[in-house]
Amino acid sequence: MLDHLVYATPDLAATAADLAARGLKLSEGGPHQGLGTRNLLAGLGLGRYLEVIGPDPDQPRPQVARPFGIDMLTAPRLVTWAIRKADLDPADSVAMSRTRPDGVVLRWRLSFPESGDGVVPFTIDWGRTPHPSADAAEGARLIALTATHPEPAAVTREIEGLGAQLDVLPGPVQLRAVIATPGGEVTLR
Rank of each mutant, 00 (worst) to 15 (best):
D3Q: 04
V6F: 02
P10T: 12
D11A: 11
L12K: 01
A13K: 11
A14G: 01
T15S: 09
A17L: 00
D18F: 00
A20C: 01
R22Q: 10
G23M: 00
G23C: 10
K25H: 13
S27Q: 04
P31G: 06
Q33V: 10
L35P: 09
T37F: 00
L41K: 15
G45L: 07
L46K: 14
E51F: 09
V52Y: 13
G54K: 08
D58S: 08
P62T: 07
P62D: 10
Q63V: 11
V64T: 15
A65H: 10
P67I: 15
I70D: 14
T74V: 13
L78E: 01
L78V: 07
T80D: 09
W81P: 05
I83G: 13
I83P: 12
R84A: 12
R84L: 15
D89Q: 05
D89M: 00
P90K: 05
D92C: 13
R98C: 08
R98P: 08
R100S: 01
V104Q: 07
F112L: 15
G116V: 13
V119L: 02
F122T: 03
I124C: 09
D125N: 04
R128N: 11
R128P: 00
P130K: 02
S133K: 09
S133W: 15
S133N: 08
A136V: 03
E138A: 09
A140V: 15
L142N: 15
A144C: 05
E151V: 02
R157P: 04
E158F: 07
E158W: 00
I159C: 03
E160H: 03
E160L: 02
A164Y: 14
Q165T: 15
L166Y: 06
D167F: 03
V168Y: 03
P170M: 02
P172E: 09
Q174N: 01
A180K: 07
T181D: 02
P182K: 13
V186L: 00
